[in-house]
Design a protein around this nucleic acid. Structure first.
Lengths: 126, 126
DNA sequence: TTATCATATGAACAGATGAACATATGATTG
DNA sequence: CAATCATATGTTCATCTGTTCATATGATAA
């Protein structure tokens, strides 16, 4: 059976009102979804991912990171600021230098899950 | 006086050559890191996060998604293409309609970890 | 103090990106 | 067949983003 075809969308929706309602109930609030997207946005840059993976093993200063990754000090500093803003890294100051490290286990877990997804795709498709 | 912004770097590196070496050994290849960043980039958009969370509960057609999230059909379709390209959603066609669902458990796990990070921050900071 | 080092910041430019509009494709119905 | 529906795609455009250059800040050493 078919419902009215309003200008607002397809006729199918009405048939699945229950499913749609259930989905709406389970959806996190819009603001939370924005924050979640902002978090992943921080992971979504090769330079920042490199920095995070470099910090997987040990804390490093800005200059070490720059040399290690073949980046300028400025670029690293800018990205560290972003990472710090997202609470993905913590830092301590020691004299002239600033040492950065991963903030917590979430960062490792998120990177690990992402890596699993990427490498599984590679294993499947060549 | 202009600072040296090349990768030549600070004097500190030599002191920690062992650490740097260890980090370099553990680093995934550059291409993998780019793929990882590209994966997270897909998660890093509010519209796509909304779509993924809507698909947490049930598979939905494009039109349902559009109405559910208050988006145009075009916008949803474009983003679904991106999600499909990253293998985050799978789809099946049924007549005129295309039903989309989350591709695998990785997607749920990544979203879950991200959500945990976001909500923990909120719990800590108000 | 001055000089130098490590890092951070501000401005500007190039490239990426998401949304809207119009249109195309592919399936179903009459 | 033509008409309609659900979805997909191409183009344009405004905005966002990352890098570089120039400079500032803050700490240390001479």
């Amino acid at each position: 059976m078919r419902m009215d075809q309003s200008v607002e969308g397809c006729a199918y929706l009405a048939v699945h009102e229950d499913v749609v309602g259930k989905v709406l109930e389970q959806m996190p609030p819009g603001e939370t979804l924005y924050e979640l997207a902002d978090l992943f946005k921080v992971f979504g840059d090769a330079t920042r991912v490199k920095i995070l993976y470099a910090l997987f093993e040990a804390e490093l200063c800005v200059c070490d990171l720059a040399q290690l990754l073949g980046l300028t000090q400025t670029a690293v500093s800018h990205q560290l600021r972003v990472l710090k803003g997202a609470k993905l890294v913590k830092f301590r100051r020691d004299g002239k230098m600033a040492f950065y490290a991963l903030a917590d286990e979430h960062v490792r877990l998120i990177l690990g899950q992402g890596m699993a997804h990427v490498t599984e795709d590679e294993a499947r498709n060549g």
